[in-house]
Write a protein that binds this DNA or RNA. Structure first.
Lengths: 151, 151
DNA sequence: AATGAAATCCGAGTCCG
DNA sequence: CGGACTCGGATTTCATT
Protein backbone atom coordinates (compact mmCIF):
# COMPACT_ATOMS: atom_id res chain seq x y z
CA UNK A 1 0.00 0.00 0.00
CA UNK A 2 1.33 3.38 -0.97
CA UNK A 3 0.37 6.92 -0.07
CA UNK A 4 0.62 9.78 -2.42
CA UNK A 5 2.24 13.08 -1.67
CA UNK A 6 -1.01 14.71 -0.55
CA UNK A 7 -1.68 12.06 2.09
CA UNK A 8 1.84 12.38 3.35
CA UNK A 9 1.55 16.12 3.79
CA UNK A 10 -1.76 15.71 5.57
CA UNK A 11 -0.28 13.15 7.97
CA UNK A 12 2.65 15.42 8.56
CA UNK A 13 0.39 18.36 9.31
CA UNK A 14 -1.63 16.28 11.76
CA UNK A 15 1.52 14.91 13.36
CA UNK A 16 2.56 18.45 14.18
CA UNK A 17 -0.84 19.53 15.40
CA UNK A 18 -3.76 17.13 15.33
CA UNK A 19 -6.13 19.92 16.33
CA UNK A 20 -5.73 21.95 13.17
CA UNK A 21 -8.99 22.27 11.27
CA UNK A 22 -9.50 20.40 8.01
CA UNK A 23 -9.98 23.74 6.25
CA UNK A 24 -6.65 24.96 7.60
CA UNK A 25 -4.81 21.84 6.48
CA UNK A 26 -6.62 22.01 3.16
CA UNK A 27 -5.37 25.54 2.59
CA UNK A 28 -1.84 24.28 3.10
CA UNK A 29 -2.01 21.25 0.82
CA UNK A 30 -4.39 22.69 -1.74
CA UNK A 31 -7.62 20.87 -0.95
CA UNK A 32 -11.04 21.71 0.45
CA UNK A 33 -11.96 20.76 4.00
CA UNK A 34 -14.25 17.86 2.98
CA UNK A 35 -11.53 16.48 0.73
CA UNK A 36 -9.06 16.51 3.61
CA UNK A 37 -11.58 14.81 5.89
CA UNK A 38 -12.23 12.09 3.34
CA UNK A 39 -8.50 11.37 3.11
CA UNK A 40 -8.10 11.34 6.89
CA UNK A 41 -11.04 8.95 7.17
CA UNK A 42 -9.41 6.71 4.60
CA UNK A 43 -6.08 6.86 6.43
CA UNK A 44 -7.88 5.81 9.62
CA UNK A 45 -9.74 3.00 7.83
CA UNK A 46 -6.58 1.58 6.28
CA UNK A 47 -4.70 1.80 9.55
CA UNK A 48 -2.11 4.31 8.39
CA UNK A 49 -3.32 6.59 11.17
CA UNK A 50 -4.06 4.50 14.24
CA UNK A 51 -5.40 7.16 16.55
CA UNK A 52 -5.11 10.59 18.10
CA UNK A 53 -3.06 11.35 21.21
CA UNK A 54 -1.55 14.08 23.27
CA UNK A 55 2.15 14.71 23.46
CA UNK A 56 2.97 14.66 27.13
CA UNK A 57 5.98 16.05 28.91
CA UNK A 58 7.42 12.85 30.44
CA UNK A 59 8.74 14.90 33.34
CA UNK A 60 5.18 15.92 34.20
CA UNK A 61 4.31 12.24 34.45
CA UNK A 62 7.26 11.58 36.70
CA UNK A 63 9.43 9.91 34.02
CA UNK A 64 12.33 12.30 34.21
CA UNK A 65 15.07 10.05 32.90
CA UNK A 66 15.27 8.67 29.38
CA UNK A 67 18.07 6.55 27.95
CA UNK A 68 19.18 4.53 24.97
CA UNK A 69 20.91 1.30 25.88
CA UNK A 70 22.90 -0.76 23.41
CA UNK A 71 22.92 -4.41 24.28
CA UNK A 72 25.70 -6.80 23.31
CA UNK A 73 24.56 -10.39 23.58
CA UNK A 74 26.30 -13.69 23.92
CA UNK A 75 26.60 -15.64 20.70
CA UNK A 76 23.54 -17.38 19.40
CA UNK A 77 20.99 -15.27 21.25
CA UNK A 78 17.86 -15.13 19.11
CA UNK A 79 15.84 -11.93 18.72
CA UNK A 80 12.94 -13.78 20.35
CA UNK A 81 15.03 -14.48 23.42
CA UNK A 82 15.98 -10.83 23.67
CA UNK A 83 12.36 -9.84 23.35
CA UNK A 84 11.24 -12.29 26.02
CA UNK A 85 13.98 -11.09 28.31
CA UNK A 86 13.14 -7.42 27.92
CA UNK A 87 9.38 -7.36 27.84
CA UNK A 88 9.21 -8.08 31.57
CA UNK A 89 10.58 -4.59 32.25
CA UNK A 90 7.85 -1.94 32.23
CA UNK A 91 10.57 0.68 31.89
CA UNK A 92 11.42 -0.59 28.41
CA UNK A 93 9.50 1.54 25.92
CA UNK A 94 11.04 0.15 22.75
CA UNK A 95 13.62 -2.38 21.63
CA UNK A 96 14.98 -3.32 18.23
CA UNK A 97 17.71 -5.52 16.86
CA UNK A 98 20.14 -3.43 14.87
CA UNK A 99 23.09 -3.54 12.51
CA UNK A 100 26.54 -2.66 13.78
CA UNK A 101 28.44 -3.89 16.78
CA UNK A 102 25.58 -3.95 19.25
CA UNK A 103 22.84 -6.53 18.91
CA UNK A 104 19.94 -4.42 20.12
CA UNK A 105 19.00 -0.88 21.03
CA UNK A 106 16.63 -0.41 23.95
CA UNK A 107 14.79 2.77 24.84
CA UNK A 108 14.12 3.17 28.54
CA UNK A 109 12.09 5.58 30.66
CA UNK A 110 12.81 5.79 34.38
CA UNK A 111 11.69 8.02 37.17
CA UNK A 112 15.19 9.30 37.85
CA UNK A 113 18.81 8.35 37.33
CA UNK A 114 18.81 6.12 40.40
CA UNK A 115 15.81 4.23 39.09
CA UNK A 116 17.50 3.93 35.69
CA UNK A 117 20.63 2.57 37.32
CA UNK A 118 18.65 -0.18 39.04
CA UNK A 119 16.93 -1.15 35.81
CA UNK A 120 20.19 -1.15 33.91
CA UNK A 121 21.83 -3.39 36.52
CA UNK A 122 19.03 -5.89 36.27
CA UNK A 123 19.12 -5.89 32.46
CA UNK A 124 22.91 -6.22 32.47
CA UNK A 125 22.45 -9.22 34.74
CA UNK A 126 20.23 -11.06 32.28
CA UNK A 127 21.90 -14.30 31.17
CA UNK A 128 21.86 -13.39 27.49
CA UNK A 129 23.49 -9.98 28.03
CA UNK A 130 27.25 -9.77 27.57
CA UNK A 131 27.59 -6.04 28.19
CA UNK A 132 25.70 -2.80 27.70
CA UNK A 133 26.46 0.73 26.65
CA UNK A 134 24.13 3.56 27.62
CA UNK A 135 23.61 7.13 26.65
CA UNK A 136 21.31 9.32 28.73
CA UNK A 137 19.00 11.75 27.01
CA UNK A 138 19.77 15.34 27.93
CA UNK A 139 16.86 17.06 26.26
CA UNK A 140 14.26 15.77 23.83
CA UNK A 141 14.40 18.05 20.77
CA UNK A 142 11.71 16.55 18.59
CA UNK A 143 8.99 14.00 19.16
CA UNK A 144 6.73 13.26 16.22
CA UNK A 145 4.42 10.50 15.07
CA UNK A 146 3.94 9.49 18.70
CA UNK A 147 7.55 8.31 18.77
CA UNK A 148 9.10 7.75 22.16
CA UNK A 149 6.23 8.91 24.31
CA UNK A 150 5.56 7.12 27.58
CA UNK A 151 2.04 6.38 28.82
CA UNK B 1 5.37 20.51 38.55
CA UNK B 2 2.89 18.02 39.94
CA UNK B 3 -0.43 16.77 38.66
CA UNK B 4 -3.32 15.96 40.87
CA UNK B 5 -5.39 12.85 40.43
CA UNK B 6 -8.03 14.53 38.28
CA UNK B 7 -5.46 15.98 35.89
CA UNK B 8 -3.75 12.63 35.64
CA UNK B 9 -6.95 10.89 34.66
CA UNK B 10 -7.70 13.56 32.08
CA UNK B 11 -4.22 13.22 30.57
CA UNK B 12 -4.62 9.46 30.53
CA UNK B 13 -7.97 9.72 28.75
CA UNK B 14 -6.53 12.08 26.16
CA UNK B 15 -3.46 9.89 25.68
CA UNK B 16 -5.75 7.03 24.70
CA UNK B 17 -7.95 9.14 22.45
CA UNK B 18 -7.35 12.84 22.05
CA UNK B 19 -10.56 13.23 20.05
CA UNK B 20 -12.89 12.38 22.89
CA UNK B 21 -15.20 15.24 23.74
CA UNK B 22 -14.74 17.20 26.94
CA UNK B 23 -18.22 16.17 28.02
CA UNK B 24 -17.31 12.52 27.51
CA UNK B 25 -14.13 12.80 29.54
CA UNK B 26 -15.99 14.81 32.15
CA UNK B 27 -18.52 12.02 32.55
CA UNK B 28 -15.65 9.64 33.26
CA UNK B 29 -13.80 11.78 35.78
CA UNK B 30 -16.81 13.49 37.32
CA UNK B 31 -16.62 17.00 35.89
CA UNK B 32 -18.58 19.15 33.46
CA UNK B 33 -17.29 19.83 29.96
CA UNK B 34 -16.15 23.40 30.69
CA UNK B 35 -14.32 22.23 33.81
CA UNK B 36 -12.41 19.64 31.78
CA UNK B 37 -11.54 22.21 29.14
CA UNK B 38 -10.23 24.62 31.74
CA UNK B 39 -7.95 21.94 33.15
CA UNK B 40 -6.72 20.92 29.70
CA UNK B 41 -6.00 24.57 28.93
CA UNK B 42 -4.03 24.82 32.12
CA UNK B 43 -2.12 21.62 31.35
CA UNK B 44 -1.25 23.11 27.97
CA UNK B 45 -0.23 26.42 29.53
CA UNK B 46 2.02 24.77 32.11
CA UNK B 47 3.54 22.48 29.51
CA UNK B 48 2.37 19.17 30.98
CA UNK B 49 0.60 18.58 27.66
CA UNK B 50 2.80 19.81 24.84
CA UNK B 51 0.50 19.24 21.90
CA UNK B 52 -1.83 16.98 19.98
CA UNK B 53 -0.66 14.39 17.45
CA UNK B 54 -1.64 11.38 15.45
CA UNK B 55 -0.34 7.88 16.07
CA UNK B 56 0.82 6.50 12.74
CA UNK B 57 1.76 3.06 11.54
CA UNK B 58 5.10 3.59 9.79
CA UNK B 59 4.75 0.42 7.72
CA UNK B 60 1.28 1.40 6.52
CA UNK B 61 2.70 4.74 5.48
CA UNK B 62 5.38 2.96 3.52
CA UNK B 63 8.15 3.84 5.94
CA UNK B 64 9.75 0.41 6.06
CA UNK B 65 13.26 1.45 7.03
CA UNK B 66 14.04 2.64 10.52
CA UNK B 67 17.38 3.88 11.80
CA UNK B 68 19.13 5.51 14.73
CA UNK B 69 21.62 8.17 13.74
CA UNK B 70 24.17 9.62 16.12
CA UNK B 71 25.09 13.17 15.21
CA UNK B 72 28.40 14.75 16.08
CA UNK B 73 28.20 18.53 15.83
CA UNK B 74 30.69 21.30 15.39
CA UNK B 75 31.55 23.11 18.57
CA UNK B 76 29.10 25.62 19.91
CA UNK B 77 26.05 24.19 18.20
CA UNK B 78 23.07 24.85 20.47
CA UNK B 79 20.32 22.27 20.97
CA UNK B 80 17.92 24.80 19.45
CA UNK B 81 20.03 24.99 16.29
CA UNK B 82 20.02 21.20 16.02
CA UNK B 83 16.28 21.17 16.47
CA UNK B 84 15.71 23.84 13.84
CA UNK B 85 17.99 22.02 11.45
CA UNK B 86 16.27 18.67 11.89
CA UNK B 87 12.62 19.58 12.10
CA UNK B 88 12.54 20.37 8.40
CA UNK B 89 12.98 16.67 7.65
CA UNK B 90 9.69 14.80 7.76
CA UNK B 91 11.72 11.60 8.01
CA UNK B 92 12.91 12.58 11.50
CA UNK B 93 10.58 10.99 14.05
CA UNK B 94 12.50 11.89 17.18
CA UNK B 95 15.68 13.64 18.19
CA UNK B 96 17.37 14.16 21.54
CA UNK B 97 20.63 15.57 22.79
CA UNK B 98 22.52 12.91 24.70
CA UNK B 99 25.46 12.22 26.95
CA UNK B 100 28.50 10.45 25.57
CA UNK B 101 30.57 11.14 22.50
CA UNK B 102 27.73 12.00 20.15
CA UNK B 103 25.76 15.21 20.58
CA UNK B 104 22.37 13.93 19.48
CA UNK B 105 20.50 10.75 18.63
CA UNK B 106 17.99 10.96 15.81
CA UNK B 107 15.35 8.39 15.00
CA UNK B 108 14.53 8.24 11.30
CA UNK B 109 11.89 6.50 9.24
CA UNK B 110 12.48 6.16 5.51
CA UNK B 111 10.73 4.35 2.70
CA UNK B 112 13.69 2.10 2.01
CA UNK B 113 17.43 1.99 2.42
CA UNK B 114 17.96 4.11 -0.66
CA UNK B 115 15.66 6.79 0.71
CA UNK B 116 17.43 6.63 4.05
CA UNK B 117 20.76 7.08 2.33
CA UNK B 118 19.55 10.26 0.64
CA UNK B 119 18.21 11.67 3.91
CA UNK B 120 21.40 10.81 5.73
CA UNK B 121 23.47 12.54 3.06
CA UNK B 122 21.41 15.69 3.38
CA UNK B 123 21.59 15.67 7.17
CA UNK B 124 25.32 15.01 7.06
CA UNK B 125 25.56 18.02 4.78
CA UNK B 126 23.94 20.37 7.30
CA UNK B 127 26.40 23.06 8.35
CA UNK B 128 26.27 22.14 12.02
CA UNK B 129 26.94 18.43 11.44
CA UNK B 130 30.51 17.23 11.76
CA UNK B 131 29.88 13.54 11.17
CA UNK B 132 27.24 10.89 11.72
CA UNK B 133 27.09 7.27 12.76
CA UNK B 134 24.08 5.15 11.89
CA UNK B 135 22.64 1.83 12.88
CA UNK B 136 19.77 0.37 10.91
CA UNK B 137 16.94 -1.39 12.71
CA UNK B 138 16.73 -5.02 11.74
CA UNK B 139 13.50 -5.93 13.50
CA UNK B 140 11.42 -4.04 16.04
CA UNK B 141 11.16 -6.32 19.07
CA UNK B 142 9.05 -4.20 21.37
CA UNK B 143 7.04 -1.05 20.86
CA UNK B 144 5.19 0.19 23.91
CA UNK B 145 3.64 3.39 25.20
CA UNK B 146 3.13 4.48 21.62
CA UNK B 147 6.88 4.55 21.08
CA UNK B 148 7.83 4.27 17.45
CA UNK B 149 5.21 2.22 15.67
CA UNK B 150 1.85 1.58 17.28
CA UNK B 151 0.56 -1.52 15.53
C1' DA C 1 -10.96 29.89 43.10
C1' DA C 2 -13.28 26.47 40.91
C1' DT C 3 -17.63 24.77 39.35
C1' DG C 4 -21.98 23.97 36.43
C1' DA C 5 -25.79 25.81 33.44
C1' DA C 6 -26.99 28.33 29.62
C1' DA C 7 -25.86 30.72 25.36
C1' DT C 8 -22.93 31.48 21.39
C1' DC C 9 -20.05 30.26 17.77
C1' DC C 10 -17.05 27.66 14.97
C1' DG C 11 -15.78 23.62 12.67
C1' DA C 12 -16.92 18.71 11.75
C1' DG C 13 -19.80 15.96 9.19
C1' DT C 14 -23.21 15.47 5.25
C1' DC C 15 -25.52 16.11 1.00
C1' DC C 16 -25.58 17.68 -3.58
C1' DG C 17 -23.86 19.23 -7.98
C1' DC D 1 -13.59 17.12 -5.81
C1' DG D 2 -15.72 21.73 -4.12
C1' DG D 3 -19.75 24.45 -2.29
C1' DA D 4 -23.43 24.86 1.02
C1' DC D 5 -26.06 23.49 4.71
C1' DT D 6 -26.79 21.27 9.34
C1' DC D 7 -25.65 19.98 13.67
C1' DG D 8 -22.63 18.85 17.62
C1' DG D 9 -19.22 20.19 20.56
C1' DA D 10 -15.94 23.74 21.77
C1' DT D 11 -15.68 28.07 23.92
C1' DT D 12 -17.56 31.95 26.50
C1' DT D 13 -20.40 34.14 29.88
C1' DC D 14 -22.32 34.25 34.13
C1' DA D 15 -24.27 33.00 38.52
C1' DT D 16 -23.19 30.00 42.49
C1' DT D 17 -20.69 27.53 46.24
Amino acid sequence: MSLNDLDERIVHALAEDARRSYADIGAEVGLSAPAVKRRVDRLLATGAITGFTVRVDPAALGWETEAFVEIYCRHKTSPEAIKRGLERYPEVAAASTVTGEADAVVQIYAEDVRHFERVLERIAGEPFVERTKSVLVLSPLLRRYGAGAPA
